[in-house]
Design a protein around this nucleic acid. Structure first.
Length: 271
DNA sequence: AAGCTGTCCTGAAAGC
DNA sequence: TGCTTTCAGGACAGCT
């Protein structure tokens, strides 16, 4: 599934291919999570100036307005001249003078949204509540610690909520907590300075490592049929219930928090 | 305000 | 073998 690292790789790919491109036509297939929000024809002639990212949203900056793309959990963006014929799960295409941008999304949790400005309307609502970017200097251990204070919910759920720090999905939350040796059910408020420092470092490490792995699948976005991401093979606990923990030899467990699977090692992750 | 739960959707895997 | 059921997941919407 597209996590922050894959979204970032996608952003770079689209930026490299389409910055400066002029939109020739827009085609929409089955409905996605939200409607586009404008007439597709009104985008014809717009120029793509830059491609940015906020959390898991790809922000395509036009000379007038923005296109927001969210990949949901099964979405992917591809660019190129030689894309194969349109398939049943292709639900949006932006044809430009530098090639085609196509959104493929079997489960249609994703979205393509037009916004006149990022601080207005739906875009403002979607982006406004997002937490700090984890791979920037704005993300600090002190800030994380301060944010966790006063949150009674389980640390795993708080990380997933995205209002404190963005981009930590289910896999990364599990992996980061394992790396930081913190039990996923620990109340966020109980995490002190030292553990906040470990968690901060772990989040950065896990995302950075995954970004490297995601980078190895760049060719996915350039035409070849999608292959599985490589990160799965790097996980220490996610999807490994019953397997031995590589660090302490304990048995990895699977529990459910907020209707979501959590994997952790009871041997070395403490409340 | 914070924190649950429901919901969207479909392919893959498990169950019968 | 083939059909049915369950599960997975991002994150907003709505309710408590």
């Amino acid at each position: 599934m597209p996590e922050l690292p894959e979204v970032e790789v996608t952003r770079r790919t689209v930026q490299a291919a389409l910055a400066g491109a002029r939109i020739r036509s827009v085609w929409l297939g089955k409905p996605l999570r939200w409607p586009l929000g404008c007439e597709p024809e009104s985008l014809v002639g717009r120029t793509i100036e830059a491609v940015q990212r906020r959390g898991k949203y790809v922000l395509i900056q036009l000379d007038e307005g923005w296109l927001l793309v969210h990949l949901g959990m099964s979405g992917s963006l591809r660019v190129g001249e030689g894309l194969r014929l349109r398939g049943p799960h292709d639900h949006a295409e932006v044809q430009t003078d530098r090639g085609l941008l196509r959104l493929t999304d079997p489960r249609r949790f994703g979205a393509l949204i037009w916004a006149s400005a990022l601080d207005q309307g739906l875009a403002a609502k979607l982006l406004g509540g997002l937490g700090v970017e984890p791979l920037t200097d704005a993300f600090t251990a002190a800030g994380l610690h301060a944010g966790l204070r006063g949150r009674a919910a389980a640390i795993k759920s708080v990380l997933l909520a995205g209002d404190l720090v963005v981009g930590v999905g289910n896999i990364y939350a599990c992996e980061a907590l394992h790396l930081a040796r913190i039990h996923p059910a620990t109340s966020a408020a109980r995490i002190g300075v030292q553990r906040a420092q470990r968690l901060h470092a772990a989040i950065v490490a896990v995302l950075t490592q995954a970004l490297g792995a995601g980078g190895s699948t760049v060719r996915n976005f350039l035409g070849a049929d999608g292959q599985q991401g490589h990160f799965q093979t790097l996980t220490q606990v996610y999807g490994r219930a019953g397997a031995p923990c590589a660090r302490c030899g304990g048995t990895v467990r699977r529990i459910v928090q907020g209707q979501r699977a959590t994997y952790f090692c009871p041997g070395c992750q403490r409340r």
